[in-house]
Design a protein around this nucleic acid. Sequence first.
DNA 1: GCTAGATGCTAGCTAGGCTAGATACATTTC
DNA 2: GAAATGTATCTAGCCTAGCTAGCATCTAGC
Lengths: 176, 176
Amino acid sequence: MANDPDGDLVDRSGVAPEDVAHISELMAALGELRATEKRIAEASRRYMQLNETDMMALHYLIVCTNRDVVATPGGLAKHLDISSASTTKMLDRLERAGHVTREPHPTDRRALAVRITPGTHLAAREGIGRQHARRFHAAARLSRRERDVVIRFLRDMTREIAPREDDRPVDDPGPG
Amino acid sequence: MANDPDGDLVDRSGVAPEDVAHISELMAALGELRATEKRIAEASRRYMQLNETDMMALHYLIVCTNRDVVATPGGLAKHLDISSASTTKMLDRLERAGHVTREPHPTDRRALAVRITPGTHLAAREGIGRQHARRFHAAARLSRRERDVVIRFLRDMTREIAPREDDRPVDDPGPG
DNA sequence: GCTAGATGCTAGCTAGGCTAGATACATTTC
DNA sequence: GAAATGTATCTAGCCTAGCTAGCATCTAGC
């Protein structure tokens, strides 16, 4: 149930058969990378007992800390694209688990300064850093020319799949 | 809040500064691809008014149909890694929306044959096919040698980031 | 100094997961 | 071939993490 199950949905006219196989290899490699990234993210979340939103919130808080920016619930809500109420609940969760603290905002007495606790900061920073380092090193092993090929391909594919005007996105839900 | 926010967490010793910039470009391109893929998936789901699980279920059903395999609730539960009870609810949703039908299983009277309705099948197939075709064509524009470079890089990075014994994981949503 | 707008909180709702247990059928064992 | 065990699905009821609506507090523009 896993080997290029969508393959038969594509019009391959004009592409040589041996290229089709080669392209499928590339697609599979891309799929593997995606799947592995997903697995890693899930494993981390399980380990830290956090859901995806909470994880993104911590990431945001780290970046704010690194940049000496005061993080507020409102800023988090905007960044995470969730409601103010959900943000309150999320901060309750994170605070209860000892990942963040709520402190008075230095200049706005309506707002709060949300701060990641040192332990969580360190642990997350380490994990993020290690993952980032691995990607970095994989990219560093390429020559400049090879990297150029990869960059061009990634950008080309991104441009290719990006939504267009003539797109009627997947489905009209008409039954039967 | 978006330009390589994790960059300062990486040990770049032994990498020339101009390579660091080049590698960051690659990471950014990879991040863009990921982000675009995510946006597209979300747009499709909004359009179809389905959640991610339901979408994956339809995809599974299409593959089953193409392969002339009878899909059952149990098979779906296993594939989606959700409980039998959740699968029942999901099938209720999909049935109510006219995306699937529950029919008697041809050989096992305990089980059901879950079938995607023709309209949904056609629409989804079209959408999936179009997306797949775009990726395919981006890959088709590469020469064999270029594809080899990309494939090797993707595999190398996958291997590099894959979980190891000495891992105490933490999430990294990635560049971008 | 009043008022419109911003900020975060509470109350109460919903979607979509989960476990436990019921029911119907299939398969194995004696 | 009857009993025991296993498999497939459904129902009931719970939990998490979203949501909207409405409130109290504070800021800032006039």
